[in-house]
Amino acid sequence: MSIITIKNLSYQYPISESDALKDVSVTIERGKLYALVGANGGGKTTLCNVIRGFIPHFYKGDLRGEVLIEGKDIREWGMGELSQKVGYVFQNPFTQISGVKDNVFEEIAFGLENLGMEPGLIREKVDQVIRMLEIDYLRDKNPFELSGGQKQRVALASIIVMEPDVLVIDEPTSQLDPKGTEEVFKIIELMKNKGKTIILVEHKIELIAEYADYIILLNEGEVAMQGSTREILTDERALTFGAALPQYSLFGMEMRRRGMDLGSIPLTEKEAIEAVKTWMKKGVNA
């Protein structure tokens, strides 16, 4: 069942002269992880902003076409209402803290306070999220004094605690080191297993190959390709649209070019190991 339906969406920012999104049509199924990929400036963040309702509620400009969240047009959703439906986490860890809380526990509680939830229940939910994301050791720290990776996990916790059905996560790891990246992806995987619908913008393509169900490749505001992760990431044309391909796919393609076809194009490390092993066995038998 689809949770978000976008039909013939075009959008132009207020002072811009051309469309940032051109005739985009996308259907988002419930419980799946969609990766938005492609070169910067291709419209990934703009599309996120539409799904989260910042366009048209916060950024004005010219929005054409249809954007339905659970069947209701984005223009008809209220911002407060939408915050419980679609959660949003973005790139910059430093601007994602409320700026008014002096400890992580209250920082995470902030969203629920705004929703007027009963304090006892808030404490319970915050406790739960803190345990789930394994950030208990940050509980009493001042959000301003956390490292980038810690801030980003607190930002995720602050959104997850509001229990939105959809998570829009825009480049959560681009300011983080490998360890921070790994921890953020652990959380994304956890949310996926909980059945959340996730829309993720990320440049680290090996991680996308690992976690995404579907890929939407945006190029110059248009959907250049969309389909299952396997379909897109084993297709060399993706490169011409400014998207990266995982090292493993590129390796499979190189083998094919050299006449040493592995039989399939592997996407992940695991698949590559399997493919090479099978291929070597065949070689010995032949």
């Binding site: 070169a39 910067n40 681009s174 300011q175 440049h203 400014g242 990266a244």
Partner: peptide, 8 residues
């Protein structure tokens, strides 16, 4: 390299 795409 932080946050850079393929062309970058």
């Amino acid at each position: 390299t932080a946050g850079q795409d393929l062309p970058a």
